[in-house]
């Protein structure tokens, strides 16, 4: 599904290479986790895949079901089925959460040549999905993420994911800023979306999120590369021993 080959990326503003040859394949139906110390390039990978400005790809490729992601505009990547749950969801004063969701859902449907959802159908769908994430009517009416707590923002990300039904979901430190209850709620939201056709890439510092969202494969990223891959036991190893042992082992 998602296939990243020898991806090299530097910051546009300064001549600094952040990703130094990332190789990664996420299959449909699987959950891959990326762990790694601060500054290893995890978030950069998520931004480059979703099309944020400020990065230059100097080598390598990233494709989603054969489509060259790096050639597409951010909105085209979204319409192709890619979704990034932001580490820091953006506040948009003046744009109602509901308007935002409806515009996004219908823009993607339009881009894929599907019919737009009617106001009634949309409302029904959003109420159903919001309920599962304990998002009340007030949160839906408020401007996007404005005045939301950390937990509310992350739940709102998962709501968007549930509404947009992407094929490939990237979660960038979705556990940051969450208490135990919120983490459980968010994880349940993610787990409800797991199915055979959908791939997940879960970026996290800590193993605890992976107690809730159980990964099939765990990758360790360091200095812009995937340095080790393994099963869920790799996350436990990090939790117990830190990154030091693993990094020393691959050095």
């Amino acid at each position: 599904m998602l296939s990243i080959n020898n991806l090299h990326v530097k910051l546009e503003e300064e001549d600094k290479e952040i990703l130094k040859g990332v190789d990664l394949t996420v299959e449909a139906g699987k959950v891959h986790a990326i762990m790694g110390p601060n500054g290893s390039g995890k978030s950069t990978l998520s931004y480059v895949l979703s099309g944020r400005d400020g990065y230059e790809v100097t080598d390598g490729s990233a494709t989603l079901d054969g489509d060259d992601l790096l050639e597409l505009e951010p909105e085209e990547r979204a319409a192709a089925g890619l979704f990034l749950a932001f580490q820091y969801p953006v506040e948009i004063p003046g744009v109602g959460n509901m308007t935002f969701l409806r515009t996004a859902v219908n823009a993607q449907r339009k881009a894929r040549g599907e019919e737009e959802l009617s106001a009634g159908d949309f409302l029904k769908l959003v109420r159903e999905k919001a309920k599962a994430l304990k998002i009340d009517a007030d949160m839906l009416m408020r401007p996007v993420n404005v005045g939301f707590s950390g937990g509310e923002k992350k739940r709102n990300e998962i709501l968007q994911m549930a509404m947009l039904e992407p094929r490939m979901c990237i979660l960038d430190e979705t556990d940051s800023g969450l208490d135990v209850d919120a983490m459980k709620l968010v994880s349940e939201g993610v787990n409800a979306l797991r199915n055979e056709g959908r791939g997940f890439l879960v970026i996290t510092h800590y193993q605890r999120l992976l107690d809730h969202i159980k990964p099939d494969v765990v990758h360790i990223m360091a200095d812009g590369k995937i340095v080790k891959s393994g099963g869920p036991e790799l996350a436990l190893e990090v939790e117990n021993n830190g990154y030091g042992d693993i990094l020393a082992e691959v050095a």
């Binding site: 979703s50 951010p74 909105e75 979204a78 979704f83 932001f86 969801p89």
Partner: peptide, 10 residues
């Protein structure tokens, strides 16, 4: 970027 990443054209 946030809006575009959700599929809303620029």
């Amino acid at each position: 970027f946030y809006l575009r990443s959700r599929g809303v054209p620029a």
